[in-house]
Simulated assay, not measured.
Amino acid sequence: MPVSCPVSAPESAEAPTDLLRRRYGADQGSQTSDWNAVLETILSHRSIRTYLPKKVPESALQLIVAAAQSAPTSSSLQAWSVVAVEDADRKAKLAELASPNPQILSAPLFLVWLADLSRLRKIATDHGKSGEGLDYFESFLLGAIDAALAAQNALVALESLGLGSCYIGGIRNHPAAVGEVLGLPPETFAVFGMTVGYPDPSVETEIKPRLPQSLVLHREQYRASAREPELAVYDDTMRTFQAGQGMAVRGWTAVAANRIADAASLKGRHVLLDILRRMGFKTR
């Protein structure tokens, strides 16, 4: 399979301390004694929602998938697949099902990452086995985790090639309809989508600050304290970011609370388990 790719990696533009400061919205001291191009690519990540009308080369797609297949996979079961969508009509249908989501229309390539138990079911049948192990929730979870690990590898790879991307969780709003558009067999589920393309340089996108490490890094045992002062500081950091990006200035905690407020806030995904069963998953 030819994998030579004409896409060149972006040149380094920022010092490690600058990238860390932008990732957290504050200076992080001198935590940069170990640094390399991979870390630079990862810490430079930002969601890209506006793309140039330029096709993603087939060679780049092959490299992206090779990177995805280089991710860890539970028991080497490789319980995932990905559908590459470039057809405008098909993208339009998926965009409508995902909220709607216009960035799917503008992206030259839309990748839909699947938890795929159908391949394993066929393998079990071919070997005279029932494949009962696939009937438990653990197997669905395994497929979803495998898909997520593969997709994140793909994201780092495509960004290293100068491409941009954004995850689309809205693909789970209408999973059965998405399955019909993509011709998915039973026991195959679209976990999320991913727009891919060349970023439009006229649209500046800043690195979004994340929670401080003190809120996510636990040593030896989990600390249950809410750490309200640190969350308040992060709210201020996010308000500054939102204002700079022309977004609604709401901070972070209020947005997070609204996103999980009730069943309606899940945008139809509160019935996901029932839909999974209708799509062929046993999920005991």
Rank of each mutant, 00 (worst) to 15 (best):
L117G: 00
H270P: 00
E86T: 13
L97D: 06
A243Y: 02
G268F: 07
V83C: 07
T253G: 00
P212R: 12
T50F: 05
L163D: 03
L109V: 12
I48Q: 07
R239Y: 01
P102A: 10
P6E: 14
F192V: 03
A243T: 00
D235N: 07
K55R: 14
L155V: 15
L39K: 03
G169E: 13
L141M: 14
W35P: 13
A60I: 02
L114I: 13
L272M: 14
P2F: 05
L217F: 15
V7R: 05
Q62R: 15
P72Y: 04
M194F: 08
Y24D: 11
D89F: 04
T125L: 15
V156P: 14
A243L: 05
P100R: 02
T32G: 09
V178E: 07
A95L: 05
N153R: 10
K267E: 14
P108E: 08
I42Y: 12
S214G: 07
S12K: 02
L105V: 09
Y167P: 02
A92C: 02
H270N: 13
V181C: 09
G268E: 11
G197K: 06
G131R: 00
A190N: 12
A13Y: 00
D236H: 09
P10T: 08
T41H: 01
A157T: 09
T50L: 04
A232K: 15
A263E: 15
A154F: 06
D87T: 06
G179Q: 04
T41G: 06
S76E: 02
V38Y: 09
Y24K: 15
G25C: 05
V56H: 12
I207G: 10
V83N: 02
A226L: 08
L149N: 06
